[in-house]
Design a protein around this nucleic acid. Structure first.
Length: 281
DNA sequence: AAGGCTTTCAACCGCATTCGT
DNA sequence: CACGAATGCGGTTGAAAGCCT
């Protein structure tokens, strides 16, 4: 027999989300909040399952997401956390406000794993790779690198109280909210849909933060004319290739959508939607 | 310029856990 | 307590972009 599917998938759409779908979902959640994911697609007029809507919101549409490349400090902390917590991505993600578990998992699997291996450290165990064992070849240099790296990690672990630390600069995130809320600087909200590292590639790190708002969150500094290239890479136009109305219109409409209570005066960076209103935790 | 290979990351799947009755 | 439904989580996949020859 097998397990029942989480939802009736007959006639449901799959694959990359279109701009229109994103718009519908975002609009719905902002206006109504999240009470039951199962009902969201029906009420929002989406041919998606609730699970898919939830994932899209959490990993992509949430306005409190911090987009952009991982800083070295973030990577270091990620390594430390992983050594303690293993593949418990959601736990790890809770130490990185604005980052999603999916993002962290992807970053670990595609970048950090590789880095550690290059340094002679087993990413699974965080122990120096026993090259004698693995290859039957003795390699002092690699082991040295690995040992050094491990020592470095251990030293950092002593220094850092992991449960209390968050790497992300709260001010940075708050500034992002302000940009969102006020449309300050040269914010163009279409950028919220621009995906992949088309945007990340121009992302400044935390270390060079503090200049213009577009640098604070470069993913938002998005050329409307270039939308089909970057946003379209994943969040595409409609299936019929239709261009979804005036972008200006959308930007204007979003202005009124982002009247989320609390963001402006927030003192923490964690938020959640309750009873249709965004509240801070 | 073109084709093949590699990398990245959004999205899916299915199991685990939590919640409501 | 038991059961079913809803949600959360981690592993995996596949499309698209980037890179290399």
């Amino acid at each position: 027999m097998g397990r029942q599917p989480c939802c009736d998938k007959v006639g449901l759409k799959r694959g990359p989300w279109t701009i229109e779908e994103d718009h519908k979902l975002m609009n719905f959640i902002i206006n109504n909040g999240i009470h039951c994911w199962r009902m969201v697609p029906k009420l929002a007029g989406l041919l998606r399952c609730g699970k898919s809507c939830r994932l899209r919101w959490i990993n992509y549409l949430r306005p409190d997401l911090k987009r952009g490349a991982f800083t070295e400090a973030e990577e270091n902390q990620l390594i430390q956390l992983h050594s303690r917590l293993g593949n418990r991505w959601s736990k790890i993600a809770s130490h990185f406000p604005g980052r999603t578990d999916n993002e962290i998992k992807n970053h670990w699997n595609t970048r950090i794993k590789k880095k550690l291996k290059m340094a002679g450290v087993d990413p699974a165990t965080h122990q120096p790779i026993d090259l004698d064992h693995e290859n039957g070849v003795h390699n002092d240099d690699d082991n040295k690198i690995g040992t050094t790296l491990m020592e470095e990690h251990e030293n950092q672990q002593v220094e850092t109280k992991l449960n209390e630390t968050t790497i992300i600069d709260d001010q940075d995130l708050l500034k992002n909210y302000e940009v969102l809320m006020t449309g300050g600087g040269n914010l163009e909200l279409e950028g919220a849909w621009s995906s992949r590292n088309t945007n990340y590639s121009t992302t400044s790190t935390n270390s060079d933060q503090g200049s213009s708002s577009s640098q604070m969150n470069p993913s938002m500094n998005y050329d409307l004319n270039d939308r089909h290239q970057s946003a379209g890479s994943k969040a595409q136009l409609g299936e019929d290739g239709e261009d979804y109305g005036s972008l200006k219109q959308w930007v204007d409409s979003v202005d009124s959508m982002f009247s989320w209570d609390g963001f402006m005066n927030t003192t923490t960076t964690t938020s959640t939607a309750l009873d249709g209103k965004w509240t801070l935790l």
